[in-house]
Amino acid sequence: MNILVCISQVPDTTTKISVGPDGTTINSTGVKYILNPYDEFAIETGLRMKGQHGGTVTTITIGPETAKEVLRTALAMGSDTAVLVKDPSRSDSFVVASSIAEYAQESKPDLIVFGRQSIDFDSFQIPPMVAEMLGWPDIATVSSLNIDGTDVTAESDVEGGKLQMSASLPCVISAQKGLYDPRYPKLPDIMKAKSKPIEERALSTVSPRTAITAMSLPESKRLNTIVGDSDADINEIVRLLHEQAKVI
């Protein structure tokens, strides 16, 4: 089974965000970039499926030259090959999804694995878009996965529970936290990954379908009424919740 794992490089959650000079993107100076946390689950899932069914794991990312770092992590974890789709500016999800779908049309994987979401834009758009472009089924937020021949059964986390889903290969899935615990790459593998070749491709030539006109930092409109822990303080907070905020 040939598996394509799609990953992204994102700012570390604890990084302070400021708006860049263009007013529509972040100021990247001093920002620490990491492998999107959910993509660790996706890489591990790809490797486990290869372990069970044989085949190859290819990892792809769309981003600037520096995004090769996350591909090196995937290679160190055990991915066979890696592909960078070069995108110096941050393209919209349609361009990203098109680039992945075009690569998949050429390389014909049996399974495409994503992380549940990327924590930069949290858009939840790419996996179903890629699936629709390819005419494939997809199962989102997968917390349990079994593949038998071409039959895929999975549990998908939804509000209030889980859906038990079935589909057939080729198929797209997105990995939820808890599907498989990601392995830590070993030092010799990290060293070896540094010299492995990374295939480079051009971005899809499709035009973006959305445009960002402004980025801003949210203004806090919170009341910030902070009190101590005396009985009078607690009763006052309850009174405010009832009479001022009217939430109880």
Partner: peptide, 10 residues
């Protein structure tokens, strides 16, 4: 976007 640390108009 960015975990609620920024907002974009789209």
């Amino acid at each position: 976007v960015y975990s609620g640390k920024a907002r974009v108009s789209v």
